[in-house]
């Protein structure tokens, strides 16, 4: 009964064996090459993420060996907390101003630096330098500048008989001060990325536009800006993520105050988790922040990327 199929079965078995060997070899190679990265991601990215979500379901004081399971209680508390709308508004306002301002300022700076100027290299280096400085150091430095009593800015304003705003105590100055310093720190980075993009815009396109009678503004809006689309999109995502996770400048300059006016979601995670020690509640806020970041990124990917023109 088996003999008629014997001649066909043998090659099929060989082929199956060969396939399995190839599959095993491929898996081996994949694990060898991608395994370390996969492991690092799991240990340092996904594991903390899962743990954070797990902790958000607990009433747990940081350092305690015991905790109580409270389900979604921490989330319910956060959504019902009268402070939440203010924290969200501060977070969004800060992100909006620093992202929009950083991109506009960075682009303007890049356009200026794209010209043939004497000492252009030095200027570019100086422009980029603040980005690589520690946020805490930058924060302390700017405290001395903004100090309304004995600060540098107060002295300069005094020359013109103008009183310094109370940057640290009166609304809306504290948040504005943090935004200004964030822009100062990030604008060089944005300029550098835009500069690379500007230098890759084909000159012949601009020449052609000039031949067709397009002015500088029209060439910029119809040729340069669209071709910078992918870079703008990249910056939009990275700056948004950076803004929503910003911490160091706020910690150094205002510690979230006064009156909570500079307390962002990220800073709330720190306050609840580390200053007060409510690790469970802090983890819930961190999870909310993660979801917010995810949603914003997906929206940007889905809707903004459609408007990007790739060369």
């Amino acid at each position: 009964m088996g003999s008629p199929t014997l001649g066909i079965a043998v090659p099929e078995t060989r082929r199956a064996t060969a396939r399995r060997k190839k599959l095993r070899r491929n898996i081996g190679i994949f694990l060898l090459l991608a395994g370390p990265n996969y492991l690092v991601l799991m240990v340092f990215t996904y594991r903390p993420m899962f743990l954070s979500f797990y902790y958000s379901l607990l009433n747990w004081n940081l350092g305690s060996q015991m905790a109580q399971f409270v389900g979604l209680g921490n989330y319910a508390e956060w959504f019902n907390d009268p402070e939440t709308p203010r924290v969200l508004l501060t977070t969004l306002l800060y992100a909006l101003c620093t992202v929009a301002g950083g991109m506009a300022g960075g682009l303007a700076l890049a356009l200026a630096l794209n010209r043939k100027l004497a000492g252009r290299g030095i200027v570019r280096t100086v422009t980029f330098a603040p980005y690589v400085l520690s946020g805490i150091a930058v924060g302390f430095l700017w405290i001395y500048i903004f100090n309304p009593n004995i600060g540098l800015l107060a002295i300069v304003l005094g020359w013109f008989d103008v009183a310094s705003p109370e940057w640290f105590t009166q609304q809306p100055w504290p948040l504005l001060m943090i935004i200004v310093v964030t822009l100062w720190k990030h604008v060089g980075y944005v300029a550098l990325i835009y500069l690379a993009g500007l230098q890759s815009v084909p000159q012949d396109l601009r020449d052609a536009a000039a031949l067709d009678g397009a002015g500088t503004l029209r060439t910029f809006s119809r040729i340069t800006l669209p071709l910078l689309g992918p870079i703008t999109f990249f910056l939009l995502i990275t700056l948004t993520l950076s803004a929503l996770q910003s911490f160091d400048l706020i910690r150094a300059m205002t510690n979230g105050g006064p009156l909570g006016s500079t307390k962002t979601l990220m800073f709330q995670v720190y306050v609840e988790g580390f200053q007060i020690g409510r690790a469970g509640y802090g983890s819930a806020v961190a999870t909310v922040l993660f979801v917010l970041l995810l949603v914003i990124t997906v929206i940007q990917m889905k809707f903004v990327e459609r408007r990007v023109h790739y060369q």
Partner: peptide
């Protein structure tokens, strides 16, 4: 997860 033991209060 190697965090706290979940149960009654400390």
């Amino acid at each position: 997860c190697s965090g706290p033991t979940v149960g009654g209060p400390d």
